[in-house]
Nucleic acid binder design. Structure first.
Lengths: 209, 209
DNA sequence: CACATAAGTGAACAACTGTACACTAGAGTG
DNA sequence: CACTCTAGTGTACAGTTGTTCACTTATGTG
């Protein structure tokens, strides 16, 4: 046996990251995973792990990088689908939801990592979220929305929007994929949250506070 | 040796819960703690654990109950300190921050549990947060604030407020206690978030959306 | 005072863990 | 072709884990 060696470069690496992700997706917490467990799930011998990662933290950091790609894809699609300004919120939320479901494990990993053991992973995820927020601010500027806000206030508002969506995603990931009622509840509530924030932003004047 | 037995009822139980909490406080994730580790930290023999808890999940659930008490204390203090409506937000945020620091480990546990392995702990924490939100709604009704909102809309707004504060708490718990600059940044940003939400709520009309 | 019970103890065990080591197959390069 | 890397393999080991068991001791109740 054991006739397969060196098939594609990085194949085992991806298997390991996928294995960790799938364990997270099946309810486990990333910080409770062990090297042996991950390699077992990946169908690989434990020692192979060290060919690609120094430690579990290291693997986590590389997952954060991939998470960044997922988020960028999501942003791109949201940008491409913005038709009219009045439907912007609902359409964007729908895109978040569909990406959230399509990449369940990634977003579970994100939610876990925010309060996880590895400070580096925490920082990575937080910086991805911040990046997302500043990109959103750029887009709104480009669309001449919330034009009366100062740069700082717009940034603040976008930060709040992104946090709210992130929190809603964690709601979403808890309900089973076929529970349409709950899914729709979360969708509606998220839309209302964002509408409330945008109403606030529309009536915001820099002097406040 | 070993001359101390049965000192106070529940003494060891509290030591075990305190030990788990202190490990969380020192950077560990609750889901990565083991029974032996906790008993070691508590200065107790591993078998003692089973006298009080069936499993780690069980201990986690009992921590959620204590978390509820902490939250109720915080609410009570916030209620007692509401002087004028115009300072309500800033004063409440200050109380959240001081309680957040005083009960670091509890709030870390809360943040971890939201995305943790145990579904029961997740549910417990989420229901504590929901309870907090409905209590906030009751208070606002009593103070005749946001009086024009329907019950549903008020609930929604309070939910958003509580989520925002919860997220801010996780920011807070990351910075070291003596980093006054960062602490103040978080404080100011949280106040602005809440102000933005309240401006939105003030201008909200049920028909929106 | 006797005694059942709750709450502590230590020893034991099989299962699992992370990691080190020595080995080997294939790919790319000169 | 000879070579050096890279990425895979199996074996080994000491340390840790959860859990069971038989035990002791203090306490409150009858």
């Amino acid at each position: 046996m054991a006739e397969k060696r060196r098939r594609k470069p990085g194949e085992t690496r991806e298997k390991l990251m996928g294995a960790a992700l799938s364990l997270v997706g099946s309810g486990r917490h990333f910080d409770s995973l062990g090297i042996r467990e991950v390699t077992r799930q990946a169908g690989v011998v434990p020692t192979s792990f060290y060919r690609h990662f120094r430690s579990m933290d290291d693997l986590g950091l590389q997952l954060v990088d991939e998470l960044g790609l997922v988020l960028r894809r999501m942003m791109r699609e949201a940008r491409a689908h913005v038709s009219q300004a009045d439907k912007l919120i609902a359409e964007s939320v729908d895109i978040f939801i569909s990406h959230g479901r399509a990449n369940q494990s990634f977003f579970l990993f994100m939610a876990q990592g925010l309060a996880g053991e590895s400070r580096a992973v925490q920082d990575g995820i937080r910086s991805e979220i911040r990046f997302f927020a500043t990109e959103l601010a750029n887009d709104l500027r480009r669309l001449k929305l919330l034009d009366h806000l100062s740069d700082g206030d717009l940034d603040m508002a976008c930060d709040l929007v992104v946090r709210t969506v992130a929190f809603s995603l964690t709601d979403l990931l808890r309900v089973s994929a076929n529970d349409d009622y709950q899914m729709d509840q979360i969708r509606k509530r998220t839309i209302r949250f964002l509408q409330l924030i945008f109403v606030g932003a529309n009536h915001w004047q820099s002097g406040t506070g």
